[in-house]
């Protein structure tokens, strides 16, 4: 059922990661992702793993919630691994019929898999510890300089947070309309592609109408509560860097340095033939 899908996947807990400024978390995620692609030695990955495990522990979010995000990319992961495994040439380790698995293939496949998994887990930490509104607030403030080149940052952020609020409602609505049409003998599962697309009309038309009706109501409710765009608006929860946020930036810097160092060790080791 559609209702089982969770989009805003915030996991409430009382941790320092939860309390961090969303801009710090955005920056941290970015730093982590960049580090995964910039540094590729085994030593650097050990450092990255340690950092990741540490952050997960501090965040108090059960690891199984992190893993949930992986489910959606499992196919992509398999394809990546299989391609790398069989298509990269080099020292042959195993030969199955016409396919060969090489040492380099295994290495690349493992690295690619780790990179993808860390990427997803890393960004899940951000979404799991930050409320969607907080996240859009962070984006709004981080991107504020774009206002100067006439990007309507406030409006985009407002749209994003409204979308986040209404996605679960519209999902439930989809479920309801689908059932209501099925009660009238609708069939959303069989038939060829064109037939199926046609069968969706009784679902999509009411859904669109409902979305417009809701948008209309919401716009009126917002106006009634004095909304007139971002100008002159204050924030109930303004983003102000606290001591912990500055510390977090330092931790990020330290992490980058460690990664850099670890990478150099790995690099040096390879050059001197120690590996």
């Amino acid at each position: 059922m559609l209702r089982d899908m969770t989009l805003g996947q915030y996991y409430p807990a009382n941790s320092v990661i939860h309390r961090l400024d969303p801009r710090v978390k955005l920056a941290g995620t970015l730093v982590f992702i960049i580090s995964l692609f910039a540094f590729r030695s085994a030593e650097a990955y050990v450092a990255a793993t340690l950092a990741l495990v540490a952050v997960i522990r501090i965040s108090k979010v059960p690891p199984k919630f992190m893993m949930r995000g992986l489910k959606s990319i499992i196919m992509l992961l398999m394809i990546t691994v299989v391609f790398n495994l069989f298509l990269i040439r080099g020292t042959v380790v195993v030969r199955i019929w016409k396919l060969t698995i090489t040492k380099e293939g295994i290495e690349t496949a493992v690295f690619m898999a780790i990179r993808l998994i860390y990427l997803i887990v890393g960004s899940s930490i951000m979404t799991l510890t930050t409320t969607p509104n907080n996240l859009t607030d962070g984006l709004e403030k981080a991107l504020r300089p774009l206002n100067k080149i006439r990007v309507p940052v406030h409006d985009i952020a407002m749209m994003m947070s409204i979308a986040l609020r209404f996605i679960p409602i519209l999902m439930e609505e989809t479920d309801k309309i689908m059932k209501a049409q099925m009660a009238r003998g609708a069939d959303f599962e069989s038939g060829n592609l064109i037939q199926r697309a046609k069968n969706m009309v009784p679902l999509l038309v009411p859904l669109f109408i409902s979305a417009f009706r809701r948008a209309n109501d919401l716009a009126m409710a917002m106006e009634a509560r004095g909304y007139r765009g971002g100008e002159g608006r204050t924030k109930m929860k303004p983003l102000v860097y606290a001591h912990r946020d500055r510390m977090a930036y330092l931790v990020m810097l330290a992490y980058l340095l460690v990664m850099f160092g670890a990478n150099r060790i790995g690099f040096a080791a390879r050059i001197f033939g120690l590996s």
């Binding site: 309801k176 309309i177 059932k179 209501a180 049409q181 099925m182 009660a183 009238r184 003998g185 009309v201 009784p202 038309v205 009411p206 109408i209 409902s210």
Partner: peptide, 17 residues
């Protein structure tokens, strides 16, 4: 079965299309 047991949901007018 669904034609024999007709089910009218809450706010059924929202299904008109």
């Amino acid at each position: 079965l669904r034609s024999k047991v007709g089910l009218v949901f809450q706010y059924p007018e929202y299904q008109l299309f």
